[in-house]
């Protein structure tokens, strides 16, 4: 078949455009990696991971350098795997912390590389981690002072929010 009819050409163009759109959506918007180059898997343990979920981004200085892999419970702390793009070197004294974009945005892992000469390789673990901030707890602390000692000027032992009694 050398002479293609107009029907064949237009259908061919339609299918090709469709595949191109799916590919564009997947690669550009959906962050799908066709050639997923080798990724370094580095473990990290957190006392709390907050709202962090699978496939959340891993960032250094705000730049995406990988994503969160498996999340599991190990000895009552969260053990997560960080899949770091090849070419990004992670020093052994890197600090991993769980942050949220904005006040209520999505959770991601932020890495602050240290100055060590030892570079973490596949299967190594990051030792220093900062757990996710609990916004509710933080607000409680802010509103009522420390949660461990009663706020100044209140009755000893009084707990709970210091609010105007609406019925008075």
């Amino acid at each position: 078949m050398t002479n293609h009819s107009r029907l064949e050409i237009s259908v061919g163009a339609f299918v090709a455009a469709g595949l191109a759109i799916v590919a564009y959506l997947a690669i550009s918007l959906g962050n799908v990696r066709l050639l997923s180059g080798h990724r370094t898997t580095i473990a990290a343990r957190f006392s709390s991971i907050g709202d962090l979920r699978n496939a959340a981004p891993v960032r250094i200085a705000g730049v995406n350098v990988g994503q969160v892999g498996k999340i599991q419970l190990a000895d009552y702390v969260a053990r997560i795997e960080l899949l770091i793009d090849s070419g990004v070197k992670i020093p052994s004294d890197t600090i991993a912390s769980i942050r949220t974009a904005g006040l209520l945005g999505e959770a991601f892992v932020s890495l602050s590389p240290g100055g060590s000469d030892r570079i973490l390789s596949d299967g190594d673990a990051i030792v220093q981690t900062e757990p996710a901030l609990d916004i509710t707890q933080l607000l409680q602390k802010y509103a009522f002072g420390s949660t461990t000692e009663p706020p100044p000027g209140t009755d000893e032992g009084r707990s709970g929010p210091k609010l105007e009694d609406p019925l008075k």
Binding site: V22, L29, N31, A55
Partner: peptide, 15 residues
């Protein structure tokens, strides 16, 4: 915003 929020699961769900 679009690039950050859209994941492959969203696209594959629609497909």
């Amino acid at each position: 915003g679009v690039e950050r929020s859209v994941e492959w699961v969203d696209i594959s769900l629609g497909l």
